[in-house]
Amino acid sequence: MSITPAERTVHETSRVEWDPDPSPYRSRRWVGPTDHTARFISSRLTAEVRGDLHQVPSTDFEDAVESAFANNPTADIIIGCLPFDPADSAVFVCGANETEPGAGSEAVQQAAAPQIRSVIDVPGVAEYERRVDEALRLIDEGAMEKVVLARSKLAAAAAPIDPQQLLERLRANSPHGFGFHVPLVDGGSFVGLSPELLVERDQLAVSSHPLAGSRSRTGGSDEDAARIADLRASGKDAREHQLVVEAVESALDPYCPDTRVDDQDITATDSMFHLGTWVRGNLATDELVRLPSVSALARALHPTPAVCGAPTEEAREMLRRVEGGRGYFTGAVGWQDRDGNGEWAVAIRGAMIEGSTALVSAGAGIVAGSDPRAEAEETGAKLRTVLSALGLGEQVTR
């Protein structure tokens, strides 16, 4: 999300130096502090990679990854981020997975929360609700079916925020999902714990688990059961969810001739319930055609209507106009090995960390029948995942 200099109350700057890479893929190597570290944690993999930080145009991502592997014979994995807007650059770190065997089974240690001294809304709740009203007008006029509007909270701490400790606190609060910590070229980090699998490739098997349609959790078993029942029965949420599932299925069809859609399920996080659906298939094999990597599949699927809207270009144009740039929020974050296997998650439930500040963002899908106040409350509930890890969960209600 775009913020102004006045909105960033604490802002650390450092000199940026670039070492041009003569590669035809226009990859660039960051030559500030060495040994950039990226991490990704899921039920399938626990990985930590150290190496050069590459920034490349999104359209060149697969070629740049192939080039990085070719130039580093000891590397077995890349971890990186794709931006929300394809006009922006992607980043990745390429190297050997340095995670010790068995590390993924160890208990996560609870790290101390940073001392937060101020929090501001970007934009304010009233402005967010006004944007929802504008989106509903455009939907009513037929300009689009859905748009995902986001808002943020910018937290400033008394001391630099440790990205790894934040990731540990996120995992301690909710051990499931896709944990990530990716360094950025401005010296900051993107850290989070996403509940949503954009795409996974395991040899020929491909799967995606899109989420759309949500209710906040209360912690009370009876009330939460009622909210799940209400979510399952909601026509509005069913339409919103179906838009996403159909888009994912359509995007996978050119690669997987046997694409199939499972029954709808409920995915629970520490603060939310989501409608989810598994979409699965197997890659078509043709000895004359190279199998697409998981990164290529991620770029083919991204952005789904779960984070952008439908139709995609119309929704994205509104988001550029009212939000500005999102950076890596609602982009994709994941890993890939030399054989093209890997996982990419939707880059949500995260924070952009820069020195002592954390920009935490969340979005809600706006369709016909959406209520501005309810959407603001939904984004507030989603924001609490990261805000709780920052020690602010109970202090923020909207």
Rank of each mutant, 00 (worst) to 15 (best):
D186G: 13
Q110S: 15
V346W: 04
G324Q: 08
T285S: 11
H11V: 07
A364Y: 06
V199I: 03
T267Y: 05
P114V: 04
A306E: 04
G276E: 04
L383T: 10
S234W: 11
R44H: 12
A68W: 09
R239W: 13
N72W: 02
I266L: 03
T46R: 14
E323K: 13
L283Q: 10
V148I: 08
E141H: 14
V91P: 10
R326D: 04
R39P: 00
D224C: 10
L149P: 05
I120A: 02
H181E: 12
W344V: 06
L82M: 14
A107Y: 05
L383V: 10
L53H: 00
S118H: 09
R260H: 12
H54I: 12
L231N: 07
G95N: 05
E196W: 13
R290G: 03
A38T: 08
E375R: 14
D339C: 10
L149G: 04
Y25H: 15
A135L: 06
S216A: 13
R280D: 04
V148C: 12
V396D: 05
S105T: 13
Q395M: 00
P86H: 10
T218R: 01
S189Q: 09
T357H: 09
G327R: 13
N97F: 07
R326H: 11
M272R: 05
S42M: 08
W335P: 03
G363K: 12
T304R: 09
T37W: 03
Q242I: 01
P5N: 10
V279T: 01
A112V: 11
P22Y: 10
L136E: 01
A376C: 12
D253C: 02
G393Q: 05
I120D: 03
E129D: 07
L197V: 03
G391T: 08
S208I: 00
A364C: 08
V148N: 08
V206S: 01
R131H: 14
S250R: 13
L170Y: 01
I366F: 06
S105D: 12
G102A: 07
G309T: 02
G325Y: 04
C81Q: 10
F190L: 15
C94K: 06
I120S: 13
E240T: 08
T285W: 06
L204D: 11
L198Y: 09
R137N: 05
T385F: 08
R117H: 07
V31W: 00
D202A: 13
D63P: 04
R227T: 02
S221Y: 08
S250H: 11
H302Y: 00
R316M: 14
S174N: 14
R326C: 11
V279F: 00
L383I: 09
A159P: 01
A68Q: 08
R28M: 03
S356I: 02
Y255F: 15
